[in-house]
Design a protein around this nucleic acid. Sequence first.
DNA 1: ACGAGATGTAAAAGATATTTTACATCATGT
DNA 2: ACATGATGTAAAATATCTTTTACATCTCGT
Lengths: 69, 69
Amino acid sequence: MPPPIANQIRRLRFEAGEMTQSELAEAIGMTRQTVAAIEAGKYSPSLEAAFRIAQVFGVRLDEVFQWTG
Amino acid sequence: MPPPIANQIRRLRFEAGEMTQSELAEAIGMTRQTVAAIEAGKYSPSLEAAFRIAQVFGVRLDEVFQWTG
DNA sequence: ACGAGATGTAAAAGATATTTTACATCATGT
DNA sequence: ACATGATGTAAAATATCTTTTACATCTCGT
């Protein structure tokens, strides 16, 4: 069962000038596959990774990830 | 090196009527030792665990954890 | 049709988080 | 002094996240 955490990464990427998964991955020091897995909801990232992703987009963490527990 | 994430768990626990580590642990489905380790900054929790902790205190995630990266 | 870039996915290895068990100190109340 | 509850801490095992490597499809421009 996938973790009950939704994310807006795909939307935020495209709103950020069609940023690719590779560009996002490089910006936060992750691999493209990890970004893809998180974006697809396969698993949720570490708290630190989540903070880095939010910072890249210049938004708060809870604008990227929503907990639907 | 400890992760660059500060937390306000100790303060929030005591503001929540002297809630003990054990009570917090039970409320979020974790062990007391894990709560103690996170509170002490030994490592940062998973995103899901962070959301659950914030919910117990009724605050936003970024009021519990601050990323000082 | 071809090549390049973007994405989907998967298996194995590595890193990190979490649990379990166990023992320690400290403060408080009786 | 003693018992109890709260906390600190540690080692080993397990679970989860992340990387690495690899190959697939799809779209777009030439």
